[in-house]
């Protein structure tokens, strides 16, 4: 198991290096000079030259890449000041190190995605299992058709509708906003409720359908029949034997959905004006804030890989065959 995790971690590091190299050469080779942002209005060619020298932009791209990578671990010194490790470069648009902005924005995105995932797993697995339990009944048919409709929804379509219904016309909730959990857990919860619901809707339907079908599949497994033949109650057999087996395909899909979850977070943050990593990515692309784009890319790739490894470790928890081989 440890070996398995180690192998996965090494793989993740390789992927991160590839992503960083790819992004670096892609963005630093487009004809847009980052120095222009730092230079301001009355910019002269001499001034740009000085900035280039200060920021190391006059060096060849591979050298810049090397300095960038070293900076992540060792920190870097720019003319504008020291950027301590982990240094992902210096944003000319924000006039501060990239890392500070990311650290500032990350809790919002983490709250949004973890909360959203919690909602869609809870609702999706719950309704799916209920549909499997009541297979063929009106409950099953209702859930199946509702999930079909919801799965064709889009965040930017659903977001404004939910806002209109719950905020603008009825005042049930106030406009979504991020309040740090450590500051006020109640407001954190209320402020993110709408984004969670909207973000989770597009995923919920998939999980409903999938947990329904895997549960039905599992209920026909021979070991489930054995459990029944032992005299275990239907409820026990359903939750202990069938559910355990149905988790494996669900965890697999969840691992693959992590990327889309982050994509969904970008759209959700944009829809509800939440200042998270997703919104930061959009802003920095618009402003051509290359170091920031670079930092956000690497950071989100790192997070997705990290959660993927956590998901892989969850396999071992679910299936002892993985744990021991």
């Amino acid at each position: 198991m440890l070996q398995f995790l180690l192998r996965r971690s090494i793989g993740a590091v390789v992927i991160l290096i590839l992503i960083s190299a790819f992004t670096f050469f892609l963005f630093f080779s487009i004809p847009q000079d980052p120095a222009l942002l730092a230079c301001g209005k009355n910019c002269t060619p001499d001034a740009i030259k000085i900035i280039h020298q200060n920021l190391g932009l006059d060096k060849p791209v591979p050298v810049q890449y090397w300095n960038f990578m070293v900076g992540i671990f060792a920190g870097r010194d720019f003319a504008v000041g020291h950027c301590s490790a982990p240094c992902f470069g210096y944003s000319f648009a924000n006039n501060q190190p990239v890392w500070n902005t990311i650290v500032d924005r990350f809790p919002t995105t983490l709250s949004l995605t973890v909360g959203g995932a919690f909602v869609f797993l809870l609702v999706g697995l719950g309704t799916g299992m209920l549909a499997a339990w009541k297979r063929g009944t009106a409950v099953d048919k209702t859930f199946s058709s509702v999930s079909l409709v919801l799965s064709s929804m889009q965040i930017y379509f659903l977001g404004p509708i939910v806002l209109g219904l719950l905020v603008y016309s009825t005042d049930i909730l106030s406009s979504p906003k991020y309040v740090p959990f450590t500051e006020n857990p109640g407001q954190w919860f209320v402020g993110l409720l709408i984004p969670w619901i909207v973000l989770s809707v597009i995923f919920t339907a998939n999980y409903t359908r999938m947990s329904r079908s895997t549960m039905i599949e599992q209920l026909q497994e021979e070991h489930v029949r054995t459990a029944k033949a032992k005299g275990m109650s239907s409820r026990y057999v359903f939750f202990r034997y069938a559910w355990r087996g149905s988790l494996i395909p669900i965890v697999t899909i969840f691992g693959m959905d992590l990327g889309s979850l982050f994509g969904g977070a970008i759209i959700t943050e944009q829809t509800f004006s939440l200042a998270g990593i997703g919104r930061l990515a959009v802003e920095s692309v618009i402003k051509t804030d290359l170091p920031m784009i670079m930092g956000v890319m690497l950071f989100s790739a790192f997070m997705i890989l990290l959660f993927n490894i956590i998901v892989d470790a969850a396999y071992a928890w679910i299936d002892p065959r993985v744990r021991l081989s």
């Binding site: 054995t226 033949a229 032992k230 005299g231 109650s233 202990r240 034997y241 355990r244 087996g245 679910i318």
Partner: peptide
């Protein structure tokens, strides 16, 4: 039936690999 199964009457299945749960 639940009270009788596994208690007064029990069954041995053909393929013990698929008939035993891999998770417990």
């Amino acid at each position: 039936l639940e009270r009788l199964r596994g208690n007064k009457m029990a069954m041995i299945f053909q393929d013990p690999l698929t008939a035993l749960s891999p998770y417990y």
